[in-house]
């Protein structure tokens, strides 16, 4: 394993962590969680859940998420991208 892999998280690692959160905290059926899945339309999250999810991702990354940043997030892949952007800061 290269050093930079330890510092940075791969998309898959973030996806898996996100999947774990969705299954455990939001009781999302695991087989529905795909990168294309829409959090609100496909996975039955509501905007209050989105706030909870943002808080959990903050704990995971140790970085603060601004409400505006998370508003544009629609799909699981968007969340992974948002987390990557957060980690790159």
């Amino acid at each position: 394993m290269k050093m930079d892999n330890i510092m940075a998280l791969s998309d898959e690692a973030i996806f898996d962590a996100l999947k774990k959160i969705l299954v455990e905290s939001f009781e999302t059926p695991e087989d529905q969680i795909t990168p294309e899945a829409n959090l609100y339309e496909d996975l039955d999250l509501d905007s209050i859940d989105a706030v909870d999810l943002a808080v959990k991702l903050q704990t995971l990354t140790g970085k603060r998420i601004k409400a505006d940043e998370f508003k544009t997030v629609r799909t699981v892949a968007d969340v992974v991208r948002a987390v990557q952007a957060l980690l790159a800061r």
Binding site: S25, F26, E27, D52
Partner: peptide
């Protein structure tokens, strides 16, 4: 229960 589960 955590809030997210309690609501459900």
């Amino acid at each position: 229960l955590p809030d997210t589960l309690a609501v459900r």
